[in-house]
Design a protein around this nucleic acid. Structure first.
Lengths: 346, 346
DNA sequence: CTGCGGGGATAGAGCGCTCTCCGGGTCGCT
DNA sequence: AGCGACCCGGAGAGCGCTCTATCCCCGCAG
């Protein structure tokens, strides 16, 4: 920065009006004479003026910034922290969350600050950041249900919205999916395809969503007389899908349907099934979950339960925006309904 | 925010000292009587004071924030923008970049603001953001070499550091890898394993790094008398690796070595090779590039050319920090050397 | 006993912006 | 013609912090 940046004062002098008038033009408030408006606009152009945000924030008490907090596993080691970031980003899920958030906030020219909270220290950092007024609120994506961050945020009275319902009730708004219904949809699809020996690769049982999907799947099957369903637990990664499918096939070589709790694991399942000579969907039908990019990136295109992550993230953003503006004061929850997307694999 | 946040004034009153003294304690400058220091510290504790960043920024002219700009393909459609974010995040590469940057900046309690620049409008937004003083500088990761953003940044005199050398010279610091050497290392490894009919799956040729890796690979082979090498162009994705390998095998069923320009494509190549009954590395040796998480996530563990992305990103952060602090004024480039990591696949 | 040097705390002037008042001009209406 | 309503622009008081200049007090030399 060589020369001093022009201020409102400079523009005012240049345009021959007062500071207040320039401010009014910049912020588009009240009626300012069109002629003067044009005059000011030209002066802004000439001086290359850009309003100083710190000064504005100081008086408006708004940062016009939100924190996007990825709250993760408890692990203090330095290496684990780096790995955490990499791992979070590896999941296609997170990219969709970002896309949804950015989609909502960008037109309002607020940009998210990326923060990680996987230790007590980093959680305090998030709190301090918000209390300092550097961000007006937080969007929290937790990787495990008993994350302490939401309670801290609520306790400090800071605006925040969560992705997924927290394990213990917290007076904060959240957005979630009816995972149980999703599991049911998958079961019904498999049943409709004539599967009689379905199995499932569920997500990590420490995650509430995994349990719900599994419960929905089992429940629907039980209602149709299939009480015992082989279950293998995966970790939402491709590799875990590979491993789970291998195990399932070893114990139940005659299975004719698989519900994987996300598309990545479904992909892994397909790969193993094909390697073992099973045709999809003729011999084994496969249903995924999420409807992420990988569902259609390869053959066979996956029949899957759609989780509208982008829409959900946009809704989080909308809720947070309302909380910040004070347009909404009570914690609210918005639960989205999943939808079955029929493709080749089942 | 129910009650008004406490200010420096409040703390000063509480401690029975002046505002300036509290400020000095908070910022740890000059000699303050230890007794008073303790007094102030207690007052801060009691009031729950958190310094207002806007006020501080206003006078220090520092935002203590940097922009992490992902600069991408030219595409104006709304849907493409959302997809862009998702795509960027899907690449394991980006997660490593974030990890490196966060690793450097977090101890200094500066957090990155995530911005996307894939249109003229969004590029202007980035510029305005910086000119408004909302961020002190930018870290730019471009997906294509002829990105106009670096030139804009340099033209505006804004501190910025790039990942990878820009296509046309720009007076900005950057961090890069000696891609050519990486290609050479891959070639030498394949040669050392006794490969006589190597092929390569290169990255998108619009990306300079892809060209360099290819040139290095070809050059080393040519020096050993292998002038003609089958080349298939991929897109750095798993699927493109699948497709490229399929094509390569169709045209050159007798190939005995493959160099893929990243690990994801190498993974794809391995998958196809195995499906076609080739043993790795006995029948066909495979060398990847990057040494990302996928290199060891599945069998066979990939022999690969390591790109120390985290270190490179941390170096970007360090350079930017120096530019911002004024400790470095001249644009500087730091080029990292790749390293061959020998594992099972070659 | 006065003068002086210096550590240590204070007073106060902004940083650049918003926003509430307020004043002056222009109408419309009686 | 007179008067209030209305509209538009200006003046000025902060927002909470940093930092320079200043002042106070104490010890010590002259």
């Amino acid at each position: 920065m060589s020369r001093q940046a022009p201020t409102l004062e400079d523009v005012a002098r240049e345009a021959g009006v007062s500071r207040a008038t320039v401010s009014r033009v910049v912020n588009g408030v009240r009626n300012v004479d069109p002629a003067i408006q044009e005059l000011v606009r030209q002066a802004i152009e000439r001086t290359g003026y850009a309003p100083n945000r710190a000064a504005r924030s100081l008086v408006t008490r708004r940062a016009e910034t939100v924190a996007l907090v990825v709250s993760g596993a408890e692990d203090a080691s330095e290496a684990a922290q780096a790995a955490f970031a990499a791992r979070v980003f590896a999941d296609p899920f997170f990219g969709r969350v970002v896309a949804g958030i950015v989609g909502f906030f960008r037109p309002r020219s607020v940009h998210p600050v990326l923060m990680f909270a996987e230790s007590d220290a980093s959680r305090q950092e998030v709190l301090t950041y918000l209390r300092q007024g550097r961000a007006d609120g937080a969007l929290v994506v937790s990787s495990h249900a008993d994350d302490p961050l939401p309670a801290l945020l609520a306790g400090a009275g800071l605006p925040a919205v969560l992705f997924a319902r927290p394990a213990r009730p917290v007076p904060l708004s959240y957005v979630d999916l009816a995972h149980r219904d999703g599991g049911r949809l998958a079961a019904e699809r498999l049943l409709a395809r004539g599967c009689r020996r379905p199995a499932t690769i569920c997500g990590p049982l420490a995650v509430a969503a995994s349990q719900e999907r599994l419960a929905g799947f089992r429940g629907a099957l039980a209602r149709r007389g299939l009480a015992h369903v082989p279950v293998a637990e995966g970790g939402f990664t491709l590799d875990s899908g590979l491993a789970a499918m291998t195990g399932l096939l070893a114990d139940h070589p005659d299975l004719d349907g698989v519900f994987a709790a996300n598309d990545l694991m479904a992909r892994g399942a397909c790969q193993i099934l094909r390697e073992r000579g099973r045709r999809i969907p003729e011999d084994v039908a496969v249903v995924g979950f999420d409807d992420s990019a990988v569902a259609v990136s390869r053959s066979p295109h996956l029949t899957t339960v759609r989780q509208p992550v982008e829409d959900m993230a946009a809704e989080m953003a909308r809720l947070l925006d309302e909380h910040i503006r004070g347009a909404r004061t009570e914690p609210t929850s918005v639960v989205f309904e999943p939808e079955l997307i029929a493709r080749e694999s089942a």
